[in-house]
Amino acid sequence: MASLRLTPLLVAATLALGACASTRGTDMLAADAPRALPDDGRVAVAWTDPAGFTELRRSANRYDAARGPWLTDLAQHLRKRAEAALPANERLELTIVDIDRAGDYEPWHGVALHDTRIMRDIYPPRMTVQFRRLDADGKVVAEGERKLSDPSYLMGIQPLNDSDPLRYEKRMIDSWVRREFADSTAAR
């Protein structure tokens, strides 16, 4: 008789989990997942197929690595910081080629920690970005590829928002934008 009472509960739990798993926009590998931020503003941000990102190819928990809005969150942060540093008459086109987030999953810790990202010095955040910087006439001012990394991410000053799961990647982006556009901000 107890199994009859549990059956509706199990059905409800299964449906709830199924609904969470099929929520649109949470799986960056889905065929209909976006590959760029909407083009509005002076900074365009796109990305290559995330299936090729180091974060997903080498992850010990590929399922967790592919879930959530972390890619679009990083792209939006990149756009926001670049727009603030870019001179008013310029445009920037960015393409994220690769991302390896700070930390990694270590499944050998057991089931209790299989979906927990472990932070160690050997797992620094890394990102590869291609860019084209255009002046007001559309002429290329600068272009290239940058390999961003923060090997001492655990030793730096801790960000104010230490509950942000992307704090190390965002700090790495902020550092790159400051270096890349130092001439632009100094000219203002």
Score class of each variant (00 low, 15 high):
Trp70Cys: 02
Arg117Glu: 02
Asp164Ala: 06
Ala51Met: 09
Lys170Trp: 03
Glu93Tyr: 09
Leu86Glu: 01
Arg132Thr: 14
Ala16Ile: 08
Gly52Cys: 05
Met28Ile: 15
Ala75Thr: 08
Glu55Gln: 10
Ala186Glu: 08
Thr48Cys: 06
Leu56Pro: 03
Pro50Asp: 05
Ala75Ser: 09
Asp104Thr: 04
Asp104Cys: 01
Pro38Met: 07
Ala84Asn: 07
Gly144Asn: 06
Asp115Phe: 02
Tyr105Thr: 00
Cys20Val: 12
Pro165Glu: 01
Arg178Gln: 15
Val141Ala: 10
Asp40Ile: 10
Ser3Glu: 12
Ala142Pro: 04
Arg120Thr: 14
Ala142Glu: 14
Leu9Val: 13
Ala30Phe: 07
Asp39Cys: 01
Leu10Asn: 05
Ser22Tyr: 06
Val140Asn: 05
Gly68Cys: 02
Phe53Ala: 03
Gly110Pro: 02
His114Lys: 06
Arg24Gly: 09
Met127Trp: 02
Glu143His: 12
Arg91Glu: 07
Asp64Gln: 13
Arg132Glu: 11
Glu145Ala: 13
Val45Met: 07
Ala13Gln: 06
Arg171Glu: 13
Pro124Cys: 06
Asp115Leu: 03
Thr54Asp: 09
Ala36Tyr: 01
Pro87Met: 10
Lys80Cys: 04
Val97Arg: 12
Ile157Tyr: 12
Leu92Ile: 11
Lys80Leu: 14
Asp100Ala: 14
Thr185Pro: 00
Asp183Arg: 13
Glu93Arg: 15
Leu113Pro: 00
Asn161Ala: 11
Glu180Asn: 02
Met172Lys: 02
Arg79Cys: 06
Pro69Arg: 14
Ala31Arg: 13
Arg132Lys: 14
Asp39Leu: 11
Pro124Ser: 08
Asp164Cys: 02
Gln130Trp: 05
Met172Arg: 01
His114Asp: 00
Met172His: 01
Asp32Met: 06
Glu143Val: 07
His109Gly: 00
Gln76Val: 12
Asp135Ala: 09
Met1Trp: 12
Thr48Gly: 09
Ile122Phe: 10
Arg79Ala: 10
Gln130Pro: 04
Glu145Tyr: 04
Ala60His: 12
Ser163Trp: 13
His114Val: 00
Leu6Arg: 13
Asp104Trp: 00
Gln130Ile: 06
Thr7Glu: 13
Ala65Gln: 00
Glu55His: 09
Glu169Leu: 08
Thr23Ala: 13
Pro124Gln: 06
Thr48Met: 12
Leu17Ile: 08
Ala51Cys: 04
Ala182Val: 06
Asp162Pro: 01
Ser184Asp: 15
Thr23Leu: 13
Phe181Lys: 01
Glu90Met: 13
Trp47Met: 07
Leu56Ser: 03
Ile157Ser: 14
Arg133Lys: 12
Gln76Thr: 15
